[in-house]
Design a protein around this nucleic acid. Structure first.
Lengths: 140, 140
DNA sequence: CCGAATCCACCCGGATACTG
DNA sequence: CAGTATCCGGGTGGATTCGG
């Protein structure tokens, strides 16, 4: 019976399938944010207090002004980072994590911790994999 | 003393800066993997057991065969997913999480949980933000 | 059933230069 | 100091087709 009824396993269960509704979308959208090249780095850099634009840039080695600006805008838009403009000259703009932004730190750190802890194994696995299937035989 | 010594705040502290060495790279590479469009979804879908290719595809709504194949290859390469080919006809290939792969579940779930829990707030923040700065003045 | 190959659109992100 | 504007290459991922 129940010919094609989805078994016990729903779309993605556990944390993902509260009601099987638009949860995948939520995960996707959050991942699109913190999964991009700089967002997580910015968040982590803001962990212990506010910083101005240039300070932020100095603390994140490879980032360009453009990318820092864009990243900050997105984070601000999502309500994770607060932007404060001081009406002075020269201008001074400070960024800090919001309440919500701070709650993201814990899971992010957990993931970062996992990454650092398991990177050796992953790297090793890659080498093994590439050693067995390097056969990109364009050669005649 | 310590004229321009970086204060308490290192590059990215806490989990990220074990020794300030190549840890950022580890985080970046892992993020490049699970931060892509499908990897995390695949991992989470494999949480409670092995699945064959087609089942996997059915459980992840929008994914194409191409993307599923590529994602699985990467995960296999990184040693997070194991691939078992049964020499039968028609062919049967099963995928499951490895030991290491399973350790990724916890932090991933934490992040996914955060996403689902905070998505309403984020979504709301976006609307507010877009309401105040929709002024994309393309004025000629 | 599983997957590789090809073609192609899109957008992310880097470099650079210019404003207030 | 804190951005914005423009150009442009490369990677990501979708649609489709072919092969074992």
């Amino acid at each position: 019976m129940d010919p094609q009824s989805q078994p016990a396993r729903s779309e993605y269960e556990g944390a993902c399938a509260s009601r099987g509704d638009g949860d995948g979308r939520a995960v996707r959208e959050v991942l699109d944010r913190i999964g991009d090249k700089w967002s997580l780095l910015v968040i982590v850099t803001l962990v212990d207090g506010l910083l101005r634009f240039t300070e932020l840039q100095r603390h994140i080695p490879g980032i360009s002004q453009r990318m820092l600006t864009l990243t900050l805008r997105q984070l601000e838009r999502d309500g994770l980072v607060a932007r404060t403009v001081h009406a002075e000259v020269p201008p001074r703009v400070e960024y800090e994590l919001t309440e919500v932004g701070r709650t993201l730190i814990e899971p992010s750190m957990a993931l970062a911790g996992w990454a650092i802890e398991n990177y050796p194994r992953i790297s090793e696995a890659r080498e093994r994999f590439d050693a067995n299937a390097p056969a990109r035989p364009p050669s005649p």
